[in-house]
Amino acid sequence: MALLNEKPRVFLEEFRVKNAPNDYGMADEKWNFKKFAKNFRIVIVRMDNFEMEFDLIGIQPAFANAFRRLMLSEVPSMAIEKVMIRNNTSIIQDEVLAHRLGLIPLRADPRLFEYRPEGATDGTEFNTLEFALKVKCSMNKSQPKDSFRAEDLYENHSVYSSQIKWQPIGNQASVHKEADIGPVHADILVSKMRPGHELDLTLVAVKGIGRDHAKFSPVATASYRLLPEVTLTREVRGSEASLLQSCFAPGVIGLDSEGRAYVRDARYDTCSRNVFRYDEIKDAVILSRVRDHFIFSVESTGAMHPSVIFVEAVKVLRDKCKSFLDELNKFN
C-alpha cells in the first residue's frame, strides 16, 4: 500500500469522496518551478484530424481548467458573421437562415488572418473571407414517371454546405488554395426547397473568439477528467469475479484463465461506484482518482488540428501572463 500513497489522490467511498490522509489539497502547496518542471508531462494517447486525447500529468487543477476554458472561448477561428440576402424565397426566415449559416464550421486557418477593426464596414483580403450561395430549385425534366421521391422530381431540392462557393478578395487566390478555404463538411443541410424557391446570398466570414459567440469556438467540445485508479485488496474469483467485472465499464476488469479478476485498464472506469451495491465484493476494491493527472479530450470543428488548438491556447495564456506582469511592473 506504500505505492498507493505516493500520488495525491481522491478516494471514492460508498457515500462520500475524501482526500488521502495528510493531504490537505493542492491549493495549499507552495509553488515550486523546479518541482513542476520535473514532474510535468504531456502524453498523447490518440490523435487524428478531428479528435485528440492526451494526459496532463503533474499539473494543478487551475491550469488544467484554464486550458479548457481558453480552447473554448479564447482561441480564434473564422466564421460567417454577416449574410447579405438578395433573394430568399424558401420557407426559412432570413434571420434563421443567417443563424444556420453562421454555425457552419469553416476550413480556414485563423492564424493567416487579422481581426477586423471595430466599426469597419468593409473587409479586406487580410481580415475577411467572402462566399456566395446561389441555388434555385426547379422541376426535373427527366424525372421517372412512376417515382414520387423528391430526389427524382426536383433539382436542387436540398441545399448543402458544399454549394457555398468561395469568392477570393484581392490577392487571396494566390495566397490560399481553394481546397483550404470553405466549409469543413460538405454534407451539412442548409435548407429544403421546392420549385420556385431560390437562394441568392453573399456570406462574409471574419475572425473571432468563442467568448463573443459560440460559432467562433474552434472546438466542438473540450473536457477533462481525473485519471481513475482501481486497486484490488484481495483475490476475487469465480462468480464474484464475474459480478465484479459487471460493476465496471467494459475493459476495466479482466478475468484470467483461472477465473480470477484483475485490473486490466482503470483508465476507462466511469467511477460509478456500482461495486458498493454488493456486500460480498465491496470490500475487494479501492476506488480513487489521481488529482494531478488530467485526461483531456479535445474535438475540433475541423478548422484547425486539435493539437494546434491546444498549442494556441498555451500561447494565449502566455500572452495574458505577460500582459499581467507588464501591468504589475508599471507600479514599480
Rank of each mutant, 00 (worst) to 15 (best):
K315T: 15
T301L: 05
V275I: 05
R291P: 00
N39H: 08
H305Y: 13
A132L: 14
Q163K: 11
S246A: 14
P168Y: 00
I181K: 03
K192W: 12
V175S: 08
I169K: 11
E178Y: 13
S138Y: 12
I80C: 00
D109Q: 04
A222M: 13
I188E: 06
I44T: 15
P76N: 06
A284Q: 00
K35E: 15
K145D: 05
L232K: 03
C321L: 11
P21T: 12
E74A: 05
R46S: 10
S161M: 06
P110F: 06
V314I: 15
A64E: 08
A108S: 06
R318D: 11
L199I: 02
E13W: 04
Y224P: 00
L70N: 04
P117W: 13
A205F: 00
E53P: 07
P8V: 10
A284F: 05
P183H: 04
F15L: 07
V219T: 10
C137N: 02
A220R: 10
F54K: 02
V314S: 12
D319I: 12
K192N: 13
T231L: 15
A186W: 02
C271H: 11
R149L: 15
A220E: 12
R289V: 05
A173Q: 10
R68C: 08
I286Q: 01
Y278R: 14
Y278I: 06
V190G: 04
L226Q: 01
E118H: 15
A186I: 11
E240I: 14
E118F: 11
L317N: 05
P144C: 07
T121A: 07
R267Y: 02
A150F: 09
F40S: 05
E280T: 14
L106C: 06
H213R: 11
A64D: 05
E95N: 05
I104S: 04
E240G: 05
P105K: 00
L244G: 01
Y154Q: 06
R318F: 14
A120N: 06
V45S: 11
P21W: 11
D256M: 05
S142F: 03
G251S: 10
L106R: 07
M26R: 13
I104A: 08
A241N: 07
F113R: 02
R116M: 11
K282A: 03
R267I: 03
L232Y: 09
K192G: 04
T202C: 10
E118L: 15
V204H: 03
R225L: 02
R69Y: 14
A150E: 14
A179S: 15
E51S: 04
L129Q: 05
L203T: 09
S242V: 06
F63Q: 03
Y268G: 06
F296M: 14
S174F: 08
L101A: 00
E125D: 15
V316W: 05
W31N: 05
E155S: 09
D200F: 08
K192S: 13
H176C: 05
L325P: 07
L201G: 02
L255D: 02
Q245G: 03
R111C: 09
R211N: 03
E13Y: 15
A66I: 07
D256P: 00
M52K: 03
A37C: 11
E14A: 09
V83Y: 00
R41Q: 14
K330I: 09
E125N: 04
E178H: 15
K177G: 14
Y115L: 09
R111E: 11
